[in-house]
Amino acid sequence: MNRINKDIEKYLEEIKKNLVCSASQKKTVINDLRNSIYDYVDETKATDIEDIYSHFGQPEDIAEQIISEIEPKTVKKAFKVHKVVLAGVIAIVTTFIIILGFYIDQWKEDVDSYILEGPAVEINGDDQELPMDEIVYYKNGVIKMYTIYYENGAIKEQKYYDRDGVLEVHTIYNTNGTVKEETTYKKDGSVKNHITYQQPE
């Protein structure tokens, strides 16, 4: 009995899919059809969904019969509501895709979009020549990072800027590459934090 119950529900779902009418009308019709089908099953002891198809008809035909009985203005209204809902869903999805695209662009800009400027870097096996200073830019032309080197090639100073060009972190290094001082700044340019590191003796 459970098997035919499931088949009956699938049958009713098929009818529902093809029905164009108001939601309340759809609900009432489907419920009443369900009752009729189960009355038929009780009376005939049908166990095969094919019996239902034979007696009641194909879902599309039933839906068509019902639609032909509904007043045209009700069908038109249901179609209109359907179109409005569909248009709304498309608008929401399109807006979401546009916003997502904007954020993806922004993310890509941060990840792979800086231009290196300063004296050219030549890497030739063991013979490396590092620039005396190095400026890294965001794609929009704002400075991202400014690095000054010691003559021995170790980093002397490094300034890191946010996308609006405001200095965020200023780090000063010892000649051996260890951090000497680090200053972080607030958005308004005032000092947020300053750390001086003790040098090992």
Binding site: V29, I62, I66
Partner: peptide, 11 residues
């Protein structure tokens, strides 16, 4: 008569 048609008339 198909049930679907009858129901609409009854409604």
């Amino acid at each position: 008569m198909l049930e679907g048609t009858l129901y609409l008339i009854l409604y």
